[in-house]
Design a protein around this nucleic acid. Sequence first.
DNA 1: TATTTTTGCGTATTAAAAACACAGTTATGG
DNA 2: CCATAACTGTGTTTTTAATACGCAAAAATA
Lengths: 241, 241
Amino acid sequence: MAKKGQYIYEYKHPAVTADTVVFGYDGKELKVLLIKRGEEKEAGTSAYVGEWALPGGFMDVDKDKTIAHTAARELKEETGLKLSVKDFKEVGTFSDIDRDPRERVITVAHYALVKLAEVQADTDADKAEWFALDEVPKLAFDHNKILQVASKHLRRDIHFEPVGFDLLPGIFTMPQLQNLYESILGVTFDRRNFANKMKRYNILAEVDDGTPRRGTRTPIRYGFDKKNYDRLKESGFQLEF
Amino acid sequence: MAKKGQYIYEYKHPAVTADTVVFGYDGKELKVLLIKRGEEKEAGTSAYVGEWALPGGFMDVDKDKTIAHTAARELKEETGLKLSVKDFKEVGTFSDIDRDPRERVITVAHYALVKLAEVQADTDADKAEWFALDEVPKLAFDHNKILQVASKHLRRDIHFEPVGFDLLPGIFTMPQLQNLYESILGVTFDRRNFANKMKRYNILAEVDDGTPRRGTRTPIRYGFDKKNYDRLKESGFQLEF
DNA sequence: TATTTTTGCGTATTAAAAACACAGTTATGG
DNA sequence: CCATAACTGTGTTTTTAATACGCAAAAATA
């Protein structure tokens, strides 16, 4: 952690934080990881103590190689979740002059996608909790607005990147994939057309995990064919769901 | 401008700047507005003096309502170009730990689109100069990388927003519009298919400015039908070029 | 056991994208 | 001045993708 001391500048500097919207999918709906704010360790005074907020915190000017490193470090410290720096996608900067009552603070918002079932055990239940997207309470600072913008980015990105596969377990079924897309986009697709379109992209691979398919009712199990996806991406290919 | 003095913090703060990639189109190719760096007015020591760079500068913590206001203010100060705050689209944050030799500086990059012919007179020729995108020299800091990312954002945004109309004069022809799209995207379209597609969106309006159309060779003049576009956008419509 | 739900596979229809031909007028080069 | 090339507009045809449904088999449900 950064050292406390006396740091002097000729011109005013803003404080900089990184906040992260962590999205997870439980098979039914999209969820977000929130923390309950405690006493601030770094800033002079604390703000919004006891309220729900996005995980995040102040940049360590000496140690954080980039602002994404700040986001990753703070997420780990506040929720126990350890993600790779490249999993953080930048959403935008929030810099309204009065967004923090203590001093001028600008924050760089990120979002990250996790396989909820696999990480739920890692999240520190004392401090962090998963909320359904439509049950998120009033949050500290401008975090409701950040959440809104991040959701919009996710909905846009899903059209061009295989983000669905970051949210689902490694092996999944076509109906699961469709449910995910429908709940993120808030629409419904025709079952058969959705499957056809997905298959045309050749980024799904049937997986045989021993489960017998006695009838057509047992859904086929798929995995994400990352190798094929990377190849397609390199050749200038563009997904469009 | 911010006052010089002694500002003390308990924890280290990074300096924050806003840089802007201003794109203009001269009818042939995409251009970018660059400035020649002089002595820094605000920071203790100057860096990259005499080199080309993107217009931008330090946030005024007391006066800049948002980081976009910083971008607008600095652009005005450095190039004479006065743009509305809402014309600045955020590209991303650049925060590598060693990107500025003086101190830790993170920058929020933006891009803006202007009608080159109409603003060329406003740009202060002593300090600023327009460069063709493929003739941009080596820039200060990580500005080449910022330019690259901004160009990528522009190429993406052009698919969903009528950005072409911000770059062209108010009245333009179909070939001009096509040339713009082709030079931004680096592709070629079939003349007839392009025109058909554009017309289907119903965001173009034929303009009669008195120029007689004696033959089919004199191109039809169009204007951007903003009213129709806003209506379409409100109804959930999405452009896709 | 009868009924409903779920899954896969397929077809017909509709809309859009891509490829292409022609005619009139202006610009260009000798 | 004339022949040629270049530019613009308006179509049509062909190919491809998107959309809307039908059917059968197995599993869950009542």
